[in-house]
Write a protein that binds this DNA or RNA. Structure first.
Length: 139
DNA sequence: GCCAACGTTGGC
DNA sequence: GCCAACGTTGGC
C-alpha cells in the first residue's frame, strides 16, 4: 500500500536544487516524535513532495523513498531515539504549489501542512497527493 | 521583526 | 503529575 508525504525543509538548509544535484540523500535531523513516527512508517517507493518553508512556502518538487527508517545518531551527547530515511530526486514542480493554495483549496485545507504548521513530515491521502501532483504540473 | 503554535524542561 | 518558563519553527 503506497503512501504519500510532504517533507518540509528550509531551502537554505537543504533545497530541491541540492537534492537534484545529489540525486539522493539521507533525510535526517528530524527531532520531533510525531514527524519521526511518520518517517518510520515510510516504505520504499512511497512518494514525498519537497516543501520549502520560510522563503518559498511552496511544494517545489517530488522525491521517492529508497530506504526505510534507520537510526539517526545525534551529534551531541544527548543521543535520542531518532530515525532517518533515504530519498531520491524525482522531479521539480513545473508549477510550485504555494501554501496559500493549500489554505484555500477545499480538498487541501485540512491537511496537516495547514493545520499543524510546525510539523516537518506530513502524511497525505492518495486523493490529496493526486491534487497536488496535478497542480504542480507533474503529470 | 513579531508573534502564534507547540514542544520541552524543570521546579514544586 | 501539573504547569510556568523557555526555546524553536514558520507564517506574516
Amino acid at each position: 500500500m503506497a503512501a504519500y508525504y510532504i517533507l518540509k525543509s528550509e531551502p537554505k538548509t537543504y533545497s530541491i536544487d541540492q537534492l537534484r544535484k545529489d540525486r539522493s540523500t539521507n533525510w535526517n535531523n528530524i527531532r520531533n516524535y510525531q514527524a519521526r513516527n511518520f518517517l518510520r512508517e515510510m516504505q520504499v517507493g512511497d512518494q514525498a513532495f519537497i516543501y520549502h518553508s520560510n522563503d518559498d512556502k511552496a511544494v517545489v518538487g517530488l522525491a521517492r523513498v529508497i530506504k526505510t527508517a534507520y537510526p539517526d545518531i545525534a551529534d551531541d551527547a544527548s543521543n535520542g531515539d531518532w530515525s532517518q530515511v533515504d530519498i531520491q530526486y524525482v522531479a521539480h514542480a513545473k508549477n510550485p504549489v504555494p501554501l496559500a493554495t493549500f489554505k484555500t483549496h477545499p480538498a487541501l485545507k485540512n491537511t496537516l501542512l495547514v493545520k499543524q504548521s510546525r510539523l516537518s513530515v506530513i502524511p497525505l491521502t492518495k486523493a490529496e497527493f493526486q491534487i497536488v501532483y496535478k497542480l504542480a504540473g507533474l503529470d
